[in-house]
Amino acid sequence: MSHKLSTESSSSFYVQLYKIVDDHLTDQIISWRKTDNSSFIVWDMKRLRRDILLKSSSGVLLGRNLTEFFAKLRSHGFRSVVKGPGELEFAHDDFARDPLMKKKLMAKALSESIERFDAQIKVMKCRIKAKKASLKVENLFQNLRI
């Protein structure tokens, strides 16, 4: 089953994962595969949990523990690449180290953020409109009592 990044899931997950995998400060914990950057490897699960998932806001999107993180990877279309014992490598057909892909992910995340903001504004406008209508009806009833 193939998951396209832009259609199947929120790009915020992919953006956050890309940032962490691409960050050279986390290379001892998680990094791109050195040969072709088409997958990433989790080098240190304890530090991934402790230093990334538990300590940063990325844990909200990526999962607060390793089980949740791996489940989210699977649900977003990542597959395990069979390696030796203790090595965890994950691949996705549309997730690779590529500056153009990074820009596309950021643009998609920004677009989703704007859409959420627009939806919140619409909800607020509806609430204001309903409140005005309620006050108008209330005033009409008060005028009828006089």
Score class of each variant (00 low, 15 high):
Lys102Ala: 14
Lys102Asn: 14
Lys102Thr: 09
Lys102Val: 11
Lys103Phe: 14
Lys103Asp: 11
Lys104Gln: 15
Leu105Lys: 01
Met106Pro: 01
Met106Tyr: 05
Met106Asn: 09
Met106Ser: 10
Met106Lys: 11
Ala107Ser: 12
Lys108Trp: 12
Lys108Asp: 10
Lys108Arg: 13
Lys108Thr: 12
Ala109Gly: 05
Ala109Val: 08
Ala109Gln: 07
Leu110Gln: 14
Ser111Met: 11
Ser111Trp: 14
Glu112Cys: 05
Glu112His: 02
Glu112Pro: 04
Ser113Ala: 15
Ser113Gln: 15
Ile114Ser: 07
Ile114Gln: 13
Glu115Met: 13
Arg116Ile: 07
Arg116Val: 06
Phe117Gln: 10
Phe117Cys: 06
Asp118Arg: 05
Ala119Glu: 13
Gln120Ser: 12
Gln120Met: 11
Lys122Asp: 02
Val123Phe: 07
Val123Pro: 00
Met124Ser: 09
Met124Ala: 10
Met124Thr: 06
Met124Arg: 05
Met124Pro: 01
Lys125Ala: 07
Lys125Met: 05
Lys125Arg: 11
Lys125Gln: 11
Lys125Val: 05
Cys126Gly: 12
Cys126Ser: 12
Cys126Ala: 09
Cys126Asn: 11
Arg127Cys: 03
Arg127Phe: 04
Arg127Asn: 05
Arg127Val: 03
Ile128Met: 02
Ile128Leu: 05
Ile128Phe: 03
Lys129His: 07
Ala130Gln: 06
Ala130Gly: 04
Lys131Pro: 00
Lys131Met: 02
